[in-house]
């Protein structure tokens, strides 16, 4: 029986699935960034738009990291994901679109982690 050897060589070319996720991520950010100063977010409190905006900006940066096949991109994305969960929990915003976002984010994270070891360690 031939044992399949898992490929651990550094990624030379970005896998298509990562490109797709990053493009989806960039589009998602373009559409959600204006949400930081939406009347609904403003109503939640003075500092809520600032925190929400910062989380979106960090997501954007993490996607750039993943796009360039950097490990810090994945680490940042996972960190932002949990920070967002805490944010939604504190602002009591769990609704349909948030649940959909969580499902997508989990899919992104699992894909990123699959390629994590083959990504570059440097900045």
């Amino acid at each position: 029986m031939v044992k399949k050897i898992k490929d651990k060589s550094p990624l030379k070319k970005r896998p298509r699935i990562l490109s797709l996720i990053c493009v989806l991520g960039f589009l998602w950010i373009v559409f959600t960034f204006p949400g930081m100063f939406s009347p609904a977010t403003k109503k939640l409190g003075d500092w809520v738009p600032a925190v929400y905006g910062l989380l979106i900006a960090l997501s954007f940066i993490s996607f750039i990291g993943v796009w360039n096949l950097k490990r810090w991109g994945v680490e940042m994305y996972v960190g932002v994901f949990f920070a967002k969960l805490v944010f939604f929990l504190l602002t009591n915003q769990f609704e349909g679109s948030v649940y959909a976002g969580i499902v997508f984010s989990l899919w992104f994270i699992l894909t990123f982690l699959y390629y994590y070891r083959r990504m570059q360690l440097n900045l």
């Binding site: 960034f33 930081m36 100063f37 403003k42 738009p49 910062l54 900006a57 954007f60 940066i61 750039i64």
Partner: peptide, 16 residues
């Protein structure tokens, strides 16, 4: 606060 935050974040996002 909102105005300053938006401008700060726009700086980061567009400059990164």
């Amino acid at each position: 606060v909102l105005g300053l935050t938006i401008s700060f974040l726009i700086g980061i996002v567009s400059g990164f």
